[in-house]
Design a protein around this nucleic acid. Structure first.
Length: 585
DNA sequence: TCTGGGGTCCTAGGACCC
DNA sequence: TCTGGGGTCCTAGGACCC
């Protein structure tokens, strides 16, 4: 192999021997550098070829290794039958006719991946999800069926649903540690916007008694000295989250990203006895390829999967994977020791009311009469009871569906009473909202603006207000949204109070394609086309050249509303100029 | 003395999630 | 000096209709 030096996210330019394992790169010591999906610049001696996407190189390395067993899973039962049974070994190109939409989970040397089958002439290929990679010919290779059925469809009668909750441990902290191994073992916290509160804590920081959401300025000085407290770096966390989910996609075709650090993964139809091992491989792969530790909870329902995940995190004996069957004895012991507030969907208010009925633990709630729970509380809590009993009752709405409203708001770096500051902040928020709006293909029919002083500050004059400004016609044009927001601000601004926060909400969203044209203000097709092209150009520039390449209105320097984020680490994976440098030889 | 009975739609606010 | 930023769903209650 050529001697290369690679600019990748690492903390120094010291020469380091890099050894590829899978799609990650091993560094001296324990640290693993996540490279998957990461565009990494490599300096090659040849001037003509001074860029290399290392992902391709490392992936090729994996593919070259001798194939072992393929674990195959079909969508629906169509792939089975014809003498093919659960657990069979198959020769792919003779037995599997590629059908549209057929998806398989295969594992090559313990590297599971979801692929589509495609027929080319006489041979069947696995199509890689990334079109840059060459198809893998399957002729003559052996496959093992480990499951069947489509988890997104309702679970067929007589078959048990299995759902996994994959949750990243201390996600923001883990992202920081992935790129700064020196943070391992130390108390680390990540702060909210404006460096206000602690929103993520390493186990070491939790052990020091720092609560979730603790205000930074109220932390004891000893802890502030001892701990590493970082500003949040959402560009990094969002990118790492996508990488984790891309790996989950290789373990099941049914992955729902529920939040930035949690995903539900459907395993209904997978061979029941191999599931823990499959989950264990998932954990190891995520850890190795991204540096993020995760825990997996397996159960028949989402609520129980959450409980299982909780147990997997708290009890070392599970080694990160905990499986619960609704009727086995283990869940009972677990649920009896679990306060209701630990359950997904039960917080303080509900817990207080449950306590009046002598319901304190998850087990007691499970044993309660669902109908009575519904009467006293709501259908939401009733569903939780059913789920605790192992009967699926919570269906996540389509997480891909467009948002019903879009909100952008920020606290100011410092209080301000200046109208010009608020104007500019509102303009920025409206522009960002408009971008999100176009990103999901919607238009808004109304814009809401709100502002408020700092409610925590006694002695300060308090004021909060909001205004809704309807638009004459649904729009996704930044100019229309900005001008509506500006009018809203004028309506509610009061000179005198010093403001802490303002925001813009886009309301009453409709699909851009389907909205009815306004009869009152018909716009010519040409005008609409111009608006669309302009906005598309703005979005593309901001996407490709970095946010704020094109802005509406001139930014002023040193404005009060600018965020404080003095301790932010580099955006290692999303900014060229923030990549770290590593030398390999 | 007696003052209907349903239904829909909308909004505000509560509760919860991460 | 300094206390985040998004979202969702559900319910209650009012306005209104026949």
């Amino acid at each position: 192999m050529n001697t290369v030096f690679v600019e990748v996210p690492m903390s120094s330019t010291t020469p380091i021997a890099v050894r590829p394992i899978g799609r990650a790169v091993a560094l001296p010591g324990e640290a693993t550098l996540p490279l998957m999906g990461c565009r990494v610049r490599a300096g090659f001696p040849s001037p003509a070829d001074d860029h290399l996407d290392v992902e391709i190189d490392l992936h090729a390395h994996v593919v070259r290794r001798p194939a072992a067993t393929y674990f195959v899973r079909a969508e629906g039962d169509s792939m089975l039958g014809d003498g093919i049974h659960h657990g069979d070994l198959l020769v792919v190109d003779r037995s599997l006719e590629p059908l549209p939409g057929r998806v398989v989970v295969i594992a090559v040397d313990g590297e599971p991946t979801v692929k589509r089958l495609e027929r080319r002439g006489e041979r069947t290929f696995l199509m890689a999800s990334n079109p840059r990679f060459a198809p893998i010919p399957l002729a003559g290779r052996e496959c093992q069926v480990v499951g069947r059925g489509h988890p997104r469809a309702p679970c067929p009668a007589g078959r048990r649903a299995v759902i996994a909750l994959v949750d990243c441990n201390n996600f923001y902290v883990s992202c920081e540690r992935a790129f700064a191994p020196r943070l391992e073992g130390r108390p680390v916290g990540v702060l909210s916007n404006n460096d206000g509160c602690v929103v993520a804590r390493s186990n070491e920081l939790k052990a020091l008694g720092v609560a979730m959401g603790a205000p930074l300025h109220l932390l004891p000085p000893a802890i502030r000295r001892q701990a590493v407290l970082l500003s949040s770096n959402y560009a990094l966390y969002g990118d790492m989250s996508r990488r984790v989910n891309r790996i989950l996609d290789e373990f099941s075709p049914d992955v729902e990203a529920y939040s930035i650090d949690e995903s539900f993964v459907g395993f209904t139809g997978f061979a029941a006895d191999g599931l823990e091992a499959h989950a264990q491989r998932l954990r190891e792969t995520v850890r190795r390829d991204t540096g993020i530790p995760v825990c997996v909870g397996l159960a028949p329902t989402r609520v129980l999967a959450k409980v299982a995940n909780h147990a997997a995190k708290k009890q070392a004996a599970f080694e990160g994977v905990c499986r619960l069957e609704a009727d086995a004895p283990a869940p009972r012991a677990l649920l009896e020791g679990l306060p209701v507030t630990e359950l997904w969907g039960v917080a303080r208010r509900t817990a207080e009311r449950l306590a009046l009925m002598e319901i304190h633990t998850a087990w007691q709630l499970r044993e309660a009469d669902p109908k009575q729970i519904r009467r006293h509380f709501s259908v939401v809590l009733e569903r939780i009871v059913w789920e605790l009993r192992g009967r699926p009752a919570i269906v996540l709405d389509d997480l891909e569906a467009p948002r019903q409203r879009i909100m952008v708001s920020r606290s100011f770096g410092r209080l301000t009473g200046a109208f010009a500051d608020l104007q500019e902040a509102v303009r920025q928020h409206a522009a960002r909202g408009a971008e999100k709006l176009r990103g999901q293909g919607s238009q808004a029919r109304a814009v809401m603006v709100f502002l408020r002083t700092n409610p925590h500050q006694v002695g300060e004059r308090q004021y909060r207000n909001s205004a809704v400004v309807p638009l004459p016609a649904p729009s996704d044009d930044s100019r229309a949204l900005l001008s509506a927001a500006a009018r809203g601000l004028e309506a509610i601004f009061l000179a005198g109070p010093r403001y802490q926060k303002c925001g813009v909400m886009l309301l009453d969203l409709v699909e851009a394609e389907r909205h009815q044209l306004s009869l009152l203000a018909p716009r010519s097709e040409a005008a609409r086309g111009r608006s669309q092209r302009l906005m598309a150009a703005v979005d593309r520039l901001n996407r490709e050249m970095g946010r704020d390449t094109v802005r509406f209105g001139l930014p002023r320097m040193g404005t009060a509303w600018a965020l404080r984020c003095e301790r932010r680490t580099p955006r290692y994976t999303t900014r060229w100029n923030e990549l770290m440098r590593v030398r390999t030889g």
